[in-house]
């Protein structure tokens, strides 16, 4: 739980200077509101691969973006998101993460890349047990906190009102794991809604 608090704190610390930087660029009276990003995604436990993609779980991710640089042709942004996925018979994950990203526009079309990390509250479907002082075993908590590194590549289309639709390929991990990291991949389909335009 301490780790979760640390990650939330880290996300908060990362986001604070961004908002300030944004204030400096855009005076408060004409600053656009924060966009709302929503995506649904398919998830599987896998190395990055499209050729051997396996059926896994489904999830939803909701977040917003803060901008270090917000020009007409490109953006450097920090995304902050929460999400949840359900992987039948294997695990469920509830996560909060923050990603640093770069987005390049080609007219209405754009491509972006992100890197980040977060915390995941993981619930494996298989129970775990802890050894007690007498050498016996008792059931462990059904939830575990994991570090969740992420990498993503996306492409989308931005409308005139600055809302956008996008698809996004993401790999993320669960750490710690007995083999360092348990890799996942996710394919997102989503929209970024800008209510103030």
């Amino acid at each position: 739980m301490k780790l979760l608090f640390k990650c939330v704190l880290l996300a908060g610390c990362l986001s604070t200077p961004l908002v300030r930087a944004q204030d400096a660029i855009h005076p408060r009276h004409n600053r656009p509101g924060l966009p709302l990003t929503v995506s649904v995604f398919s998830e599987s436990i896998s190395l990055p691969t499209l050729a051997k993609m396996q059926k896994g779980g489904v999830g939803i991710k909701i977040g917003t973006e803060l901008y270090y640089r917000n020009r007409s042709g490109s953006q450097v942004f920090q995304a902050v998101s929460v999400g949840y996925y359900h992987h039948p018979r294997v695990q469920n994950g509830l996560f909060i993460n923050s990603e640093l990203g770069y987005r390049k526009y080609f007219g209405g079309l754009y491509a972006d890349a992100t890197i980040g990390g977060g915390a995941m509250l993981l619930q494996p479907m298989a129970p775990s047990y802890v050894r007690n002082e007498t050498g016996g075993y008792q059931k462990a908590s059904s939830h575990q906190i994991k570090f969740m590194p992420t990498l993503g590549l996306g492409a989308g289309y931005r409308f005139r009102n600055h809302s956008a639709i996008f698809t996004r390929y993401e790999v993320f991990g669960e750490m710690p794991f007995s083999q360092i990291l348990l890799p996942h991949q996710a394919l997102h389909l989503g929209a970024r809604l800008n209510f103030n335009k």
Binding site: A126, R131, Q144, P176
Partner: peptide
Amino acid sequence: GYADFYANGQLMDVTA
């Protein structure tokens, strides 16, 4: 069957 699947000192049921 059990293993320290997540390297956290806990034994996870890995029978599946």
